[in-house]
Lab assay of single mutants.
Amino acid sequence: WVQCTKPECRKWRQLTKEIQLTPQIAKTYRCGMKPNTAIKPETSDHCSLPED
């Protein structure tokens, strides 16, 4: 599990088994990010989705 770092969101998201949760990902994670590439989402507001 990882928490969105966006102050107005802070929702918890479940990561897939393939993703290694590192301190860097935990510090920078935003809803919809692909942690294995550290690319921020380009599409709609993933923070608007219900918490996992």
Rank of each mutant, 00 (worst) to 15 (best):
D45R: 08
R30G: 04
I39Y: 07
R13P: 03
A26L: 11
S44T: 15
Q24C: 06
D45L: 09
E18C: 05
R10H: 05
K27C: 06
P23I: 01
L21P: 01
L49K: 10
R13Q: 10
L49F: 10
Y29F: 11
I19Y: 11
T37C: 08
Q20C: 05
P7D: 12
E51D: 14
Q3M: 05
K27W: 02
P50C: 05
W1C: 12
T43E: 12
V2A: 04
T28S: 08
S44P: 12
M33R: 04
Q3I: 00
K40M: 08
K17V: 03
Q3P: 00
E8S: 15
W12E: 02
C4L: 05
C31E: 02
M33G: 06
T5C: 07
R13F: 05
H46E: 15
T43Y: 13
C4V: 01
K34S: 14
T22D: 12
K27V: 00
Q24D: 14
L49A: 12
G32Q: 04
V2K: 00
L15F: 08
A26P: 03
L15D: 01
E8C: 03
Q3Y: 00
G32S: 04
T22F: 00
E51S: 11
T28P: 00
K27P: 08
T16W: 00
P50A: 12
T28R: 03
M33Y: 15
K11G: 02
P7W: 05
C31T: 02
H46A: 15
Q20H: 06
E42F: 10
E18K: 00
T22M: 02
V2M: 00
C4H: 01
A38R: 14
K6H: 06
W1F: 02
S48I: 09
N36L: 09
Y29M: 02
T43L: 10
Q3R: 08
R30F: 06
R10P: 04
R10F: 01
Q14H: 10
R30P: 03
K40Y: 10
H46M: 15
R30I: 08
S44A: 13
K17I: 00
C9F: 01
T28M: 06
M33V: 04
Q3E: 01
P35W: 12
E8L: 03
K34F: 15
Q14M: 08
G32D: 04
S44C: 10
T16Q: 05
K27H: 14
T28Q: 11
K6S: 07
C31R: 03
E42A: 09
Q14F: 03
E42T: 06
T22Y: 02
Q20T: 07
L49M: 15
T5G: 02
I19D: 08
S44Y: 11
R30D: 04
L15H: 03
N36I: 10
T22L: 03
R13A: 06
T43I: 09
Q24Y: 14
E51A: 07
I39N: 08
E8G: 15
C31S: 01
D45P: 06
I39F: 15
T43K: 15
K11H: 01
E51P: 05
P41W: 04
G32W: 01
W12N: 00
W1G: 06
A26G: 04
G32K: 01
D45V: 11
E51F: 04
P35N: 05
P23A: 02
E18D: 11
C47F: 04
P41G: 14
H46G: 12
R13K: 13
E51I: 06
P50H: 04
Y29S: 01
N36P: 11
R30K: 12
T37H: 09
C47H: 03
G32H: 08
T43V: 09
W1D: 05
I19T: 09
T37V: 10
T37L: 14
T22K: 00
I25E: 15
R13V: 10
K17W: 11
K34V: 15
V2D: 04
P35I: 13
T37F: 08
T5R: 02
W12G: 04
P7E: 06
W12Q: 02
S48M: 15
M33W: 13
R10C: 13
G32V: 01
D52C: 11
C4I: 02
K27S: 12
T43D: 12
H46K: 13
C4P: 00
K27R: 11
W1V: 04
A26V: 13
I19N: 13
A26C: 09
M33P: 02
T28I: 12
M33L: 07
Q20E: 07
A38S: 12
K40P: 12
T28E: 10
S44Q: 06
P35L: 15
C47P: 05
E8M: 06
S48L: 14
R10V: 04
T37N: 07
E8P: 05
P35G: 13
Q24E: 15
K11F: 00
C4Q: 02
N36F: 09
A26T: 11
Q24T: 13
D52V: 05
P23E: 05
T16K: 09
R30W: 12
P7L: 04
R30Y: 15
R13D: 03
S48W: 08
Y29R: 04
Q24M: 11
T5W: 00
E8H: 11
T43H: 05
I25T: 11
V2N: 08
T37Q: 09
L49S: 11
W12D: 01
P7S: 05
P50K: 13
P23N: 01
I39V: 15
Y29N: 02
C31D: 04
D45Q: 14
Q3D: 00
K34L: 14
P23Y: 00
Q3H: 05
W12S: 01
K34M: 03
K34Q: 06
T28W: 03
H46T: 12
N36G: 15
E18R: 03
Y29K: 07
C47W: 07
W1A: 14
T5A: 02
H46Y: 15
S44V: 13
L15T: 03
Q20Y: 02
S48C: 11
T16Y: 05
Q20I: 04
K40A: 13
G32M: 07
E8I: 00
Q20G: 04
R13N: 05
T5V: 06
E51L: 07
T28K: 05
S48R: 12
S44I: 12
L49T: 09
R30E: 13
K27F: 08
K6Y: 09
L15G: 01
T5Y: 02
C47S: 09
K6L: 12
P7Q: 05
E18Y: 02
E18V: 01
T37G: 13
K34P: 12
D52W: 03
R10E: 07
P50T: 08
V2T: 00
T16A: 14
L15V: 10
P50R: 12
Q14T: 02
L21F: 06
Q14V: 04
I25M: 14
T43P: 13
S44F: 10
I25Q: 15
Q14P: 02
D45Y: 05
D52T: 15
Q3N: 08
W12L: 03
S48P: 10
P41Q: 07
A26H: 07
C9P: 01
E51T: 13
S48N: 11
T16H: 10
L15N: 04
L21H: 02
Q14G: 05
P23Q: 07
P35V: 13
N36E: 11
V2S: 00
G32I: 00
T37A: 11
R10G: 15
A38N: 10
T16E: 15
T37D: 12
I25P: 03
K40T: 14
T16P: 12
P23G: 05
E51M: 02
T16D: 12
E51K: 12
K17E: 12
A26K: 15
T28N: 13
E42Q: 04
A38D: 12
W12R: 03
P35S: 11
T22I: 00
V2R: 00
E18H: 13
M33T: 09
R10N: 01
I25S: 04
Y29G: 03
K40C: 09
P35Y: 15
H46S: 12
Q24W: 11
T16N: 12
W12A: 02
G32P: 07
R10W: 01
I25H: 01
D52F: 04
K11R: 10
K27E: 10
E42M: 09
C9G: 01
T16G: 15
M33A: 05
Q24R: 04
D45N: 09
W12H: 12
K11D: 05
I25L: 12
C47Y: 09
E18L: 04
E8F: 06
D45M: 07
P35Q: 10
D45G: 11
L15R: 02
P35M: 15
K27I: 09
K6V: 13
C4S: 01
A38G: 14
L21K: 03
A26Q: 14
E51H: 12
I39D: 15
E18F: 07
K6T: 10
L15C: 06
T16C: 03
C47M: 10
W12T: 02
R13W: 07
Y29P: 01
E8D: 15
C9W: 00
M33D: 09
T5I: 03
Q20P: 08
L49C: 13
P50V: 11
P7V: 05
T22P: 01
H46P: 10
G32R: 03
Q24K: 08
I19G: 11
A38M: 15
K6D: 15
T22H: 07
K40H: 15
T22C: 09
K34T: 15
I25G: 06
I39A: 13
T22R: 02
L15A: 08
Y29L: 01
K6C: 03
L15E: 07
A26D: 08
L49N: 08
E42Y: 10
R10L: 07
N36M: 10
P35C: 14
P7R: 04
L15S: 07
Y29W: 06
H46L: 10
R10M: 10
R30N: 06
D45F: 10
K27T: 07
T28D: 11
T5L: 00
L49D: 07
T16M: 04
L21C: 04
W1S: 13
S44N: 14
R30Q: 12
N36H: 04
C9M: 02
A38Y: 09
A26F: 05
C31L: 00
C4K: 02
V2L: 03
C47N: 14
C4M: 07
E8A: 09
E51Y: 05
Q24S: 09
P50Y: 09
A38C: 12
C47K: 10
I19S: 08
S44W: 06
E51N: 02
L49G: 12
Q20F: 01
K27N: 04
I19A: 04
C9K: 00
K6F: 03
D45T: 09
P50Q: 10
E42I: 01
I25W: 10
V2I: 10
I25C: 06
R13E: 14
A38P: 13
C47A: 12
K27D: 07
P50E: 06
R10D: 06
N36R: 07
P7K: 08
